[in-house]
């Protein structure tokens, strides 16, 4: 009758009040509970996912706003002034842009700090993972490696861009941005930043869906194939849109190089349609 008991007792078979035999099954938890486990790992994990999701969604919206230059100069001018509150406050307030940049910067730093916990710590872990990745030849494992390196690159590249926007929020406009890209020599940074950010975001979104089981279907593998397809599609779409947009700014910047620094004036102000109103 040597059954196992959590209390270490050998008297497993016992009679209760009615004289019926009972077995003491292992109890739920040991009587003394040293200390409750911290809730922080759960919160930090959620925060890492939430900040990443926010940044990815922001990045997508950002790309659409920036790419309005492909529609027309005026379209981009309108979007830029819109975010300066020109249509609510009467006149553009570039400080609003700085405010948004500060919020993004805080979330960006929080996300980087949280995600950094997952990086290989030290050479031993680095080597263990490399060896594992190379022998396993498994796409999701290799994607994580790309995620680490693009994330690492973003520490620096995104920070430069954010600081630039924080300090010169007023210089967002067709000529202003194009001059920054070409005359200001920012295009190599923007090119690398585009690739790193879009890859990092689409892999991150894919990972989020896997991690929390979003859009789950009955058959996990079929749903994963769909997710992977969506990931590739998002990467391809945003990188293409980004490259075309960057090319448009480079083009405009080169054409405008000799007049660099000149502010853009929208067409209805520079060439009024109804001169009689003046």
């Amino acid at each position: 009758m040597a059954l196992i008991d959590n209390n270490g007792s050998h008297e497993l078979l016992d009679a209760d009040a009615s004289g019926q035999l009972v077995i003491h099954a292992p109890t739920t938890t040991p009587a003394r509970q040293p200390r409750r486990k911290s809730r922080w790992p759960a919160r930090l994990d959620m925060l890492q996912s939430a900040s990443g999701l926010f940044l990815a969604v922001f990045l997508m919206a950002h790309m659409f706003f920036v790419s309005t230059i492909l529609i027309s100069h005026d379209a981009f001018y309108t979007v830029a002034r819109f975010f300066e509150g020109a249509y609510f406050l009467g006149k553009p307030q570039p400080l609003l842009v700085s405010g948004v940049v500060i919020v993004i910067l805080v979330i960006f730093i929080t996300h980087a700090w949280l995600a950094m916990r997952k990086f290989p710590a030290g050479y031993r872990q680095y080597r263990a993972f490399m060896q594992h990745k190379n022998s396993l030849r498994h796409s999701d494992t290799s994607l994580w490696w790309l995620q680490i390196w693009t994330g690492f690159a973003l520490f620096f590249m995104a920070t430069i861009h954010l600081y630039d926007m924080l300090m010169q929020p007023a210089l967002i406009g067709p000529y202003e941005s194009a001059d920054r890209v070409w005359t200001g020599n920012m295009w190599p940074l923007y090119l690398l930043l585009l690739l790193a950010a879009e890859l990092h975001a689409s892999i991150g979104l894919y990972r989020l869906a896997i991690k929390w089981g979003w859009f789950a279907a009955k058959q996990p593998n079929r749903y994963r194939r769909r997710l992977r397809w969506a990931k590739h599609a998002i990467s391809a779409f945003y990188i293409t849109l980004g490259l075309v947009t960057l090319a448009a700014y480079v083009d405009l910047g080169r054409a405008h190089a000799d007049r660099a620094g000149e502010r853009y004036v929208p067409t209805q102000q520079s060439a009024p349609q109804h001169p009689g109103k003046h």
């Binding site: 009972v22 077995i23 292992p26 739920t28 938890t29």
Partner: peptide
Amino acid sequence: TWIHDATPVAID
């Protein structure tokens, strides 16, 4: 990883 059940098991 085993079933934790505090209620006494009546075997009959």
